[in-house]
């Protein structure tokens, strides 16, 4: 990414949060929704503009599950492993996703298309088991349908990283 764009992007985030006490997590959410993850140069720039030590930023990023340090791939697939989903076949869905994509949770396919992760309850237990692909929530998913949903995504340009 071009140097100046990065500075400008971070300036928008910094302007929104800098003068609000304790808003680092909110700033990081904004940053991640801009880039899809927290790139190191963006974290450095945020540290400079918000006048927060870089170590403080990394200590927060690494504590919370939602913040990512690696580009997540175009399509983020979250298999819910909350209790209800776990009991109703969430594990089978995760196996299927691992097998179809050839990666483990937390990894991204080599072509950068898919990122697989495990979610701890998406609060849709009445529709268990559930999977989200990017922002879309799929209800009562069966293992055989998951493959179709995944192949339907391939090539589509709607990953979180490209949003906005």
């Amino acid at each position: 990414m071009a140097e100046q764009t990065l500075v400008d992007d971070i300036a928008i985030i910094s302007k929104r949060w800098k003068n609000k006490e304790g808003s680092l997590i909110m700033a990081l959410h904004d940053l991640q929704s801009r880039f899809g993850y927290i790139p190191r140069d963006a974290a450095l720039e945020l540290a400079r503009q918000m006048e927060i030590p870089l170590a403080r930023i990394y200590e927060v990023i690494t504590f919370y599950h939602l913040f990512k340090l690696e580009p997540p791939g175009k399509h983020v697939v979250s298999v819910c492993m909350g209790t209800a989903c776990y009991m109703k076949g969430g594990e089978k869905l995760l196996e299927k996703a691992k097998e179809t994509l050839g990666i483990e949770p937390g990894e991204t396919t080599p072509d950068g298309e898919f990122h697989l992760q495990v979610a701890r309850c998406l609060g849709c237990c009445g529709l268990a088991p559930v999977v989200t692909i990017n922002e879309e929530l799929l209800a009562k998913v069966r293992a055989e349908d998951l493959e179709n949903h995944l192949s339907a995504c391939k090539g589509k340009e709607e990953g979180k990283g490209d949003a906005s």
Binding site: G22, S23, L24, I25, V60, F63, Y64, R120
Partner: peptide, 21 residues
């Protein structure tokens, strides 16, 4: 930001303050 422990009151406060929960 995805940390179960933040439901605990003092951890929640730390998180609102922008720190590790």
């Amino acid at each position: 930001a995805g940390a179960f422990v933040c439901g605990e009151e003092t951890a929640l406060i730390a998180s609102v303050e922008g720190r590790r929960g």
